[in-house]
Design a protein around this nucleic acid. Sequence first.
DNA 1: TTGAGAGTTCAATCTATACTGAACTAGAAG
DNA 2: CTTCTAGTTCAGTATAGATTGAACTCTCAA
Lengths: 162, 162
Amino acid sequence: MNTQHLDHNLLTYAEEWGLLFERWGLPRTAGRIWGWLHVCDPSDQTAGQLVDALQVSKGSVSTNTRLLENLGLVERVGVPGARQSHYRVRADAFEGIMRQRIVAVAQARALAERGLGVLESAGAERKHRLTAKRDFYAFLEREMEELLRHWQGRREEGTLVD
Amino acid sequence: MNTQHLDHNLLTYAEEWGLLFERWGLPRTAGRIWGWLHVCDPSDQTAGQLVDALQVSKGSVSTNTRLLENLGLVERVGVPGARQSHYRVRADAFEGIMRQRIVAVAQARALAERGLGVLESAGAERKHRLTAKRDFYAFLEREMEELLRHWQGRREEGTLVD
DNA sequence: TTGAGAGTTCAATCTATACTGAACTAGAAG
DNA sequence: CTTCTAGTTCAGTATAGATTGAACTCTCAA
């Protein structure tokens, strides 16, 4: 496989991440960047390189790199002697993903809880129905936090081996 | 709290589920229905009741109840002597939610895997970067399946107590 | 001090998709 | 058979929000 062909396939790969992100309610461009940063060479890319590779506007790259930074997936690093910032996947990016998921579940749990407050004086059956929902999200929240710790432990082990 | 006031607060509650769903990339109306079906009285609602309560069109209710059915969150039941279908939260709805999440993670894992195929002849560092990603999603997929079994076990226990 | 490049911001535009409303299908009631 | 009601489908519309491109700010270098 020649370089051009490889790059084309990698762009397709990035593009598919864009579509996945979209299905998850996130901007397509953020997904393209997230996908691309795992397969690009070099691993650290300037905004300009992202613009060229992914064919999106400077503005969009700026907005979406910031989004990915805020989600804890990507970091901006300075390179000595270079004027531009470079972006790369954070070493602890996957913790960021899990934290995002935990936040989403926590929101659902909190919302169910507020609902229970509203139902205070209502009949038992309705409360029971909603309590089951709250309990499920609470379960998921607790277990995902546990999973996060599990993952962090795994990563530390891995680091020792390096 | 009088009935009217209660209903107003419950509608607000349903509305907030709509907003949550939207953030998750699902139709707002599906979220409203999902929220409403946990707090409405009676627990089983006709399409007409949903139209009246949530102030959305018949068409939208039809589309979104189907969506929720396909996601495994809601079921359609017949009531003897009644012409209409009734919708209610499925007893095993939360398993549906977990399955959905597992599918989403599996898609990400599969996509990373395909990316690894493309990188076959590329340098070691890139492969390493992408392998880490694949491993993470594979980890999450495995653990969430485990979590699903855990939840199912919990539910069975609970059922015995009923 | 001026010029150039990097990055941000934001108004205007584009696009995807959810929603509505009306026409249609199916089936029950009379 | 005809009428009515429930539900589906779909073309058209509305809308949310992502993207662009241009103007702007900042910083560095000459």
